[in-house]
Write a protein that binds this DNA or RNA. Structure first.
Length: 570
DNA sequence: GCCGTTTTCGGCCCGACTGTTTTCAGTCG
């Protein structure tokens, strides 16, 4: 049993206890232990064999004993008991935005509802509004929440799909005679959410490649298996298409399947102007002769264009830019010098300052900016001014130890509902960089929430605005912000806007990045890491920057600290 | 249920919003 599976059981225990109205601290202790277990760098099975389970943070006597039972017997009596009391379907209701443990329990006990479709049906029949504490508005809210879920279902987060695609590519490379294996489609363009995974490969032995593909361990169901195309469903529900083709047409096929559709249409129109018809199989001249392209570069070259990076292929002017020789030199993973959004155990992060710094140093970074939550976000263990001072002392100590690597002192301060911050100015003034964010009062109307954001941007102590639009993919819409006003004010005051690399945020996304850059706003990329693993999300943030045509000069954390210090407003 | 350079017991859980209320419960971050 791996760490993820173990953590899942404790997470479910927490959910079930909460539905039963269990003690908040106890519920939270299970949840925090689950997080800690999931991201622990060493397999719990290993630690268990050596009797070292208690070394895992947030695993105490009781949870260690439960892990022991789980690993020795493959079962956990306590978990099984709870499952008898709380049906599976009731747990699934917690995934509906706006439905928490109390409502889930109510829906189950009073109406016998134990699945999302049942709740949706009952809500449409207006049966929820007669429950105690619920009225028509609550019913609408629940229906809206279910619609949000549906909207994402069928689509997966880029952060989920990308590692899976990369793993499949690696496995195929190792176990089959496939060459040139590449994921294409919206995944290659790095869209924040993707429908299914499309992979292309070239080979002289298609049958063997396909046979290796359908035998991958993640495959739950084979929908289609042929010599040119096979389709499978993975055990997590993702659909994967593999196309195998000959090498001479690889370029046009890759270009075609990468899309976007709109980009391809524009490309074909441009080709027609030059008397060429473009399809996935190649170019055709008016006299019927064919031009095949083994590489994508040749596809673009044939009609007089430089190769266009996939992230830009969204029909947002990239073809015009390419024709004019004005394609940007997009920022790359290698340009990044540090991470500007990092949590530690001073708030809701798992690891210590030194652990996070060591992990960042191992990635080749020059610095990280610590951005622990401040006191307003109490549930996240937000820092008081006293804790800020303690953290400062620890940073100094770590910096002495790890020099020239540098831990920058900062915080993720709360922008309160009136636009003020929840740490005093004199505390903020002492920090290297201050990140501010909205985490509550997300449903304020446009005028109010915009003014609130502008007030934070105007604060001379605020350097960066984190996850500016507040969206959570598949869970929550953006806040009602007037983004244009935010961009203008950021430009005017020299405030940096963040690209948050958390898979369910990816906020700002490409379109916002583009607008910000047009107005001369500087951006930063932060992973919002809550544990060492989380630092690895940086490429997702870089992908959003690239989708917005950002160059290295547009991204604050590609600069060295001394240069950047001169550029920020403080 | 976890945790401890003030503690082995008593903290940990804050603030805002929404929808249902007429003084509060539930949800969220």
């Amino acid at each position: 049993m791996n760490n993820k599976e173990i953590s899942q059981i404790f997470r479910e225990i927490a959910d079930m206890l909460e539905i039963q109205g269990g003690d908040f601290y106890r519920v939270n202790a299970y949840r925090r232990a689950a997080d800690s277990i999931e991201h622990h760098p060493v397999a719990l099975e290993e630690l268990w064999k050596e009797g070292r389970l208690r070394e895992v943070p947030r695993v105490g006597e009781a949870i260690a004993k439960k892990i022991d039972e789980l690993l020795s017997t493959g079962q956990l009596g306590y978990y099984e008991e709870l499952k008898e009391q709380v049906p599976d379907g009731v747990l699934s209701l917690l995934t509906i935005p706006g439905v928490g443990p109390k409502t889930a329990k109510l829906l189950h006990e009073k109406l016998g509802l134990a699945s999302i479709p049942e709740v949706e049906h009952a809500a449409r029949e207006e049966r929820l509004r007669h429950l105690p504490g619920l009225r028509a508005r609550s019913e609408e809210k629940i229906l809206h929440g279910i619609e949000m879920l549906h909207r994402l279902s069928g689509r997966s987060l880029l952060g989920t799909a990308l590692p899976i695609a990369q793993e499949i590519v690696e496995r195929l490379r190792a176990t089959s005679p496939a060459e040139n294996i590449v994921p294409v489609g919206s995944l290659r363009r790095r869209k924040p959410t993707i429908g299914d995974i499309d992979i292309l490969a070239t080979t002289a032995k298609p049958t063997q490649v396909m046979s290796a593909f359908v035998k991958l361990s993640q495959v739950a169901e084979v929908l289609l298996q042929g010599d040119t195309k096979s389709t499978v469903i993975l055990d997590n529900g993702l659909q994967v298409d593999l196309r195998v083709l000959s090498e001479e047409r690889f370029g046009t096929l890759m270009q075609y399947f990468t899309g976007s559709k709109e980009h391809n249409v524009q490309l074909r129109i441009l080709a027609l102007d030059q008397g060429l018809s473009l399809s996935e199989y190649g170019y055709k001249k008016e006299d019927g002769t064919e031009i095949t392209c083994p590489t994508e570069e040749e596809v673009y070259e044939t009609i007089g264009l430089p190769w266009i990076p996939p992230e830009m292929r969204e029909a947002r002017g990239e073809i015009e830019a390419a024709r004019a020789g004005k394609l940007p030199q997009l920022v790359t993973d290698g340009d990044i010098r540090g991470d500007f959004h990092v949590h530690t155990n001073y708030s809701d992060g798992v690891h210590t300052i030194e652990e996070m710094a060591q992990a960042a140093k191992a990635k080749g970074y020059d610095y990280i900016l610590l951005t622990d939550h401040t006191r307003g976000l109490g549930v996240a263990g937000g820092m008081t001014p006293e804790r800020v001072a303690e953290q400062r002392a620890e940073i100094k100590w770590v910096n002495e130890k790890l020099a020239p690597f540098r831990v920058l002192a900062g915080a993720e301060v709360e922008i309160r509902s009136n636009g003020t911050l929840d740490l005093p100015d004199e505390v903020l003034a002492e920090m290297d960089l201050v990140v501010a964010a909205i985490h509550s009062g997300l449903r304020q109307e446009r005028e109010k929430i915009t003014q609130r954001m502008l007030a934070a941007i105007r604060n001379p102590h605020v350097d960066i605005i984190a996850h500016p639009t507040g969206r959570l993919l598949g869970q929550r819409e953006e806040i009602a912000l007037d983004f244009e006003a935010v961009v203008r004010e950021a430009a005017k005051t020299g405030t940096i806007l963040e690209i948050n690399a958390q898979p369910n945020r990816l906020d700002l996304d490409g379109a916002h990045v583009m607008r910000a850059i047009q107005e001369g706003v500087l951006l930063s990329i932060g992973t919002d890491a809550h544990h060492m693993d989380g630092l690895g999300l940086m490429p997702l943030g870089v992908a959003m920057a690239r989708r917005g045509w950002a160059e290295a000069k547009d991204i604050a954390n590609t600069m060295n600290w001394e240069d950047l210090k001169k550029k920020v407003k403080r």
